[in-house]
Design a binder for these strands. Structure first.
Lengths: 250, 250
DNA sequence: CCCCCCTTTTGACAGAGGACAAGGACAGTC
DNA sequence: GACTGTCCTTGTCCTCTGTCAAAAGGGGGG
């Protein structure tokens, strides 16, 4: 039974509704890649008893920047954004998460950034207290989480170079190449055609640009024959080498 | 016996020279705050046998971006920068590390950014293989490392907001406030006077600005009576409230 | 099938910050 | 104390990107 995720339930008072059916994990699409992938069957069953499956609709915010960190989750399906913002409303997307990624801030007091669904999404949700306790007593899970966090940190720092030192053209090109890799499935090569899970405004928020600059740069690249834009959301990479050159500043 | 860190030894072939004197850890200034802080005495002694103490001079690079990740270390004393750069030499500082911080990329193939000493520094150095093995068999160490990595990730993402969405004035103000907190000792409040461990160029590289813009903004704030700059490296915060306003964009 | 709303694109203009250049200050050396 | 190299500051100009405004395009509902 899939429960529908009610926004009101994101409040600290949300009552966790444990998932009864222990067979869920067996069918889980992302089990192998998620942090629970290397747990023994009985351990995973125990973890499963702590969590619940929820759906979130595109646009719904699962956690708010600065709130008490009361939940964590694995992403089963869909795409979500992590975002931070200034007091006067300027927004920066600090991460985009995909199926098998982990969201939330374990072992901490408050959530440092908001988490919002970009598409309809399915999550495997845990209360933070229950998850923290489980992770502390299951080193294998902690280790997977550590590896994933180290990878996230590397990615965040690579993005800092982009935000601080690249110009608009380089940012767009780097972004498109990154998407072409991240949207590819397990072990598959980069995609030459894909649907962006982000609107132009959201692309701007990832890159620290305005929507107009994003639009102009993409149109320029289209005119240069480097990419094609058959409709609003899909991107075809026509000349990957040249796109890589743009990303490097050449 | 303190060994001097030879740059050539950063090469993969570097022979680890174990530290014989197990009492080192007892006297270690940062033991309580470092990731080894919660280990039992015998465990810490075992870890100690895997590592060696080294000195690095200001300006020396301990690891190079893209190199095989062969070493990790705890910072005992001094300040170091983590930096990434584009093919054509633009640089972005993606982190500044202080005593008790951990550096290097455990459980990974290559180092994603360079590590360079800003001041003379003392490190407690491990080969990555030895450290990885130890961490895998000592969950408590892994857990401390996880907490630290989660904190680093939060900081990196907060900095992404600064890099992507703040203007020069806000960046400088945020940076100065951050420094005033990070340079304060254990549990102490923020400092109203401190010596920057960074040159103007390095401040620019942290904030994604040019050295001229950094200089101009700091002079402007000095003229506005918000800060004083008694010499090149020291900063006095005269009006913290106003500085906080600058940081927020007000 | 048309209409309406929202997203995206395009245009014109302005301003923040970068690039280049020169002058000034400071620390270490002789 | 003069010298010298490095780091920092200041000045001028220019460009990239942001801002504001309007037009164009697309998708969903009636």
């Amino acid at each position: 039974m899939m429960m529908h995720f009610d926004l009101a339930q994101t409040a600290p008072a949300a009552a966790p509704v444990p998932c009864q059916d222990a067979s869920y994990c067996q069918q889980c699409d992302v089990r192998a890649r998620a942090i629970c992938g290397t747990l023994e069957d009985d351990e995973r069953a125990a973890l499963n008893r702590l969590g619940r499956r929820v759906m979130v609709q595109a646009g719904q915010t699962v956690m708010w920047e600065g709130d008490d960190a009361t939940i964590v989750a694995n992403v089963i399906e869909g795409t979500l954004k992590l975002s931070a913002s200034t007091g006067d409303g300027r927004e920066q997307i600090v991460g985009v998460v995909y199926p098998s990624d982990f969201i939330g801030r374990p072992f901490g007091r408050s959530t440092p950034h908001s988490v919002t669904a970009l598409t309809d999404a399915r999550l495997c949700l845990f209360t933070r207290g229950a998850f923290d306790g489980f992770a502390r007593t299951h080193p294998e899970l902690g280790h997977r989480l550590l590896q994933r966090t180290l990878d996230d940190l590397d990615r965040a720092r690579a993005w800092m170079l982009l935000l601080g030192r690249k110009n608009a053209r380089e940012k767009i090109a780097t972004f498109l190449l990154d998407m072409s890799h991240r949207l590819a499935g397990e072990g598959a090569g980069p995609l030459d055609s894909f649907a962006l899970p982000l609107s132009r405004q959201q692309v701007a928020d990832v890159l620290g640009l305005t929507i107009e600059t994003v639009s102009r740069q993409m149109t320029d690249m289209k005119r240069a024959g480097i990419i094609a834009l058959p409709n609003r959301r899909t991107v075809d990479i026509l000349d990957r080498d040249q796109l890589a050159c743009c990303a490097e500043g050449a």
